[in-house]
Design a binder for these strands. Structure first.
Length: 496
RNA sequence: GCCAAGGUGGCAGAGUCUGGCCGAACGCGUCCGCCUGCAGAGCGGAUCAUCGCCGGUUCAAAUCCGGCCCUUGGCUCCA
């Protein structure tokens, strides 16, 4: 079964064929490190991550590059704020470290490189020079602009017509540009105080001097433009032609459109073969939107819900659709995740708890496991349909529970197979805590011993008919995050 | 104004490319039953959809074609 993806470039579903047999060049349009990342950013990361994981699972060598934009007016606007730092580089470093922390927290597979703009200025200058030499760009007042009329295919990604495009860039740039849609590749000088004013915290002293880093270039001191970085860095670390370029839907125009133009003008080669755009995260019921900042940061969300719930949330909607975020949605994600986890743990417990060999053969269960793998695979190959894939996994949970419920003796072989499926698909592909990392190491902690002690006491109370006292103990444990469950053959507990 | 993505049950959200298996998946919620001292979890069952509107094509449409309405994103930095 082969993978098919929805390509923004053509607007159609296409069969995925990488340029080189077993290798996939994956570029993810990263973040401007001018603030902490929120759940919307994490959605892009999560989907790119699952794509990465799925491609790797299918045997591809995935070369994943994801940039950090650390040269930007919004970063300059934060200079001197809180403890972020006194230079553009310091502020960028502050947020970059947070982003890296968030990415780790989300259990993302590491990219091969995380290039930063500030470390690629020479490459950017080279690219701009090439464009000038080839007649696609021109210098004006120390700045360099891309001449959109020189590139016949301009607008092909976003279906824009040149005469319908409104001016790009700030007002004062207009006089320097030949066509209103021309965009800056290189900006002369440091950042103009006027350009940072709108992003600046009004409580802080305004920035009065031109600020931010500048670099020497053939056109004088200046800074790289807004769109060149991705082209320069992806070509440096991957190749002139990428297989997959992933980004947020809001960036199709002008950012991605400009990337295509400048890259293809410079190399004469196709820039990216498949453009995958991730839909935006919407907040549920705009009632709570007192201000714009009604999004949760990744850090807060991780703290509040935990990685697995967050990842399950993302795996509940196809990447290209919009997704609504809200309390109810997160609750549902929690229920889904716990259902999965419980079924998995049940299977693990049974298999670990005895050395017996297969006692029964449950043909239905075995078939359900095979179906899960087939359905999961088909769903993922169908444009990374994570929701369908998750549905398959949840059906495996149901099948597992049913088998356990219906039998006194178990089909160990089948349970092992089920465990493997949970670990391969849920653990490896979805990045959930199912598998080695999740299972207990065998060492008993003091906490566990104490819980068991309390449970012994509670058991004694129950035997004595003191249910009130027993329930109190259960509630107290629940308050401490220990979920107690009475089953036919004893009491079990798990830490939340 | 222009470009793009959407409008499917109480919620959320697949399916639309490749028309029939969709009287619409998985799940959340609600209700009933089993289990249980109780609760939870689990299992079984039930509830809830004229698939935005109008027209067309077809033996057959959520799925194709045309028109209209509405929402969101972009056209200024933005995942």
């Amino acid at each position: 079964m082969t993978l098919s993806v929805t390509n923004t470039l053509t607007g159609e579903r296409e069969e995925f064929e990488p340029r080189n047999d077993d290798e996939v060049l994956l570029y993810v349009c990263g973040l401007t490190v001018s603030d902490d990342a929120h759940l919307g950013h994490a959605r892009l990361w999560a989907h790119a991550d699952v794509m990465h994981r799925w491609l790797a699972y299918e045997g591809y060598d995935v070369r994943h590059v994801e940039n950090f934009t650390d040269v930007n007016e919004k970063i300059v606007a934060r200079i001197g704020e809180d403890e972020y730092g006194d230079s553009e580089a310091d502020v960028a470093e502050h947020f970059t470290s947070h982003v890296i922390r968030d990415m780790r927290g989300l259990n993302l597979k590491r990219a091969e490189v995380y290039p930063r703009v500030s470390e690629h200025v020479p490459e950017i200058i080279d690219l701009v020079e090439t464009l000038v030499e080839r007649g696609y760009a021109y210098e004006s007042n120390g700045s360099v602009y891309f001449d959109v009329t020189s590139f016949d295919d301009y607008g092909k990604l976003s279906n824009q017509q040149l005469d319908e495009i409104e001016t790009q860039g700030p007002e004062e740039e207009r006089s320097e540009k030949r066509h209103p849609a021309d965009f800056a590749l290189w900006k002369a000088g440091a950042v103009d105080p006027a350009d940072v004013a709108e992003h600046r915290d009004p409580d802080l002293h305004p920035i009065e001097e031109p600020s931010g880093q500048t670099w020497e270039s053939p056109w004088g001191e200046g800074r790289p433009g807004w769109h060149v970085e991705c082209s320069a860095m992806s070509m440096t670390h991957l190749d002139d032609t990428l297989d997959i370029h992933v980004g947020g839907r809001d960036l199709v125009f002008p950012h991605h459109e400009n990337e295509v133009a400048q890259s293809e003008a410079a190399t004469g080669e196709q820039f990216a073969r498949y453009w995958l755009h991730v839909g935006l995260l919407q907040t549920a019921g705009d009632k709570m939107s007192s201000s714009l900042g009604n999004f949760l940061t990744v850090d807060q969300a991780l703290d509040q819900y935990g990685v697995d719930v967050v990842r399950t949330f993302y795996c509940s909607t196809a990447y290209r659709s919009e997704q609504t975020f809200g309390e109810r949605e997160m609750e549902e994600a929690r229920e889904r995740w716990e259902r999965l986890e419980r079924a998995y743990e049940t299977a693990v417990d049974i298999c670990d708890g005895t050395d017996a060999y297969a006692k029964v053969e449950d043909a239905q269960f075995r078939e359900a496991i095979a179906e899960t793998r087939a359905d999961f695979e088909a769903a993922m190959n169908d444009d990374f349909n994570v929701r369908e894939a998750m549905a398959a996994l949840l059906e495996l949970a149901t099948a597992t529970n049913r088998h356990v419920d219906d039998h006194d003796a178990y089909d160990y072989w089948a349970l092992r197979e089920a465990i493997e499926a949970f670990e391969d698909l849920g653990g490896e592909v979805f990045g959930l805590s199912l598998g080695d990392a999740a299972t207990d190491s065998g060492t008993v902690t003091l906490a566990e011993e104490l819980v068991e002690l309390v449970l012994d006491v509670r058991e004694a109370e129950r035997d004595a008919g003191n249910y009130e006292r027993a329930d109190e103990l259960r509630d107290d444990l629940a308050d401490l995050g220990v979920e107690v469950q009475d089953e036919d053959d004893g009491t079990t507990y798990r830490f939340e």
